[in-house]
Design a protein around this nucleic acid. Sequence first.
DNA 1: GTAGAAAGTGAGGGGCATCTCAACATATGC
DNA 2: GCATATGTTGAGATGCCCCTCACTTTCTAC
Lengths: 191, 191
Amino acid sequence: MTATPGLRRDAQANLEKLRVAALAVFSRRGLSAPLEDIAREAGVSIGTLYNRVGSREELIDAVVDNLAGEKLKALRDRTLEAETPRAQLETFITEMIDLQLSDPAMNDAMLRRYPDAVLLINACERSMALGAELVETAHVAGVLSDEFTPEDLMTVLWMAGMASHDPAAPHGWRRVVDRSVSAAWTDHPNS
Amino acid sequence: MTATPGLRRDAQANLEKLRVAALAVFSRRGLSAPLEDIAREAGVSIGTLYNRVGSREELIDAVVDNLAGEKLKALRDRTLEAETPRAQLETFITEMIDLQLSDPAMNDAMLRRYPDAVLLINACERSMALGAELVETAHVAGVLSDEFTPEDLMTVLWMAGMASHDPAAPHGWRRVVDRSVSAAWTDHPNS
DNA sequence: GTAGAAAGTGAGGGGCATCTCAACATATGC
DNA sequence: GCATATGTTGAGATGCCCCTCACTTTCTAC
């Protein structure tokens, strides 16, 4: 993809193998998976991993597009397709939670573990900014209580993230999350 | 306290020193504090710690009364002093959250880390059973929506626990927690 | 071809915590 | 007193994971 110039051909290839492996391992086991596993899956030594990417954070950033970027972009698109401010915010929330549920890496991302993975954090911030906009739009449209702030949205998503991969979380966490949002609507479902 | 018979006098004393140290360290740093630190604080070697108590879980259970039992009992008492079902449940919730906020060990306990610390888990279960009763009493009294189940209470407390010692938690988590409860009342504050 | 720069390798060192065990100490019963 | 069962000790083994670096291999430009 992004041919890094001044990199020997084998190094380039290894970097690519590492990207592929990192993507697979991160997606399966989350962003805290042992780097040794990624090197092994790439068919490369741990030393090479460190030669190519200086740290876990850089490795994350090297795969951020496939890891999170695309998914968040798709989420944004589907969100903006919705017709009403309410439907938009609802789409945003449910899809974000689904993402967290289905993808341990996305979950780690949204929870800001690895705050030094700059590109990843940026991608998350952008999504959160969209979320905040949707909240404000809903306020202006008069369909969402002013009591429900953008920060409340962050909280609700944070909670979903924490719950979604904790076996000790109460089974009914989703009820509470859903209700926290649905209680804030001030309209009938189609405005 | 509980003189364990068939234990030599010095061993008995060391066990007591370990209890004291464990209580202090757990309270300060949570139930996952290194056992070496507890041994050091007790003025005893790590080997002795393992001789006296076979594992972290047993050590937790050995101090469970002072660690959680008393506090939970006090909480129960203050809860039952309240005059109305609503006031009782409110007391229970706010005091439980305060406990989690102020005491890392209580937090670990309520979150069921260390599920093998049997006595600790029992103590927590008892508190949770009280919470569930209060919810049901409030239902019967007609002051709490039937939509708010005992499991919702667990969820809310779990969430508070997760948030209270996570620096990455959104600042406004308490808003959402409080609202999840207050939205469920069906009366005016004094029934 | 070949030299020399670039890259690959993986054993090993470091951190952190758990847990063990052979050598050493002491309380207790006779 | 003294034998001995009972305790204590702490260095070191184990388990994870991170990261480095002296040595080997491979590319590539000439």
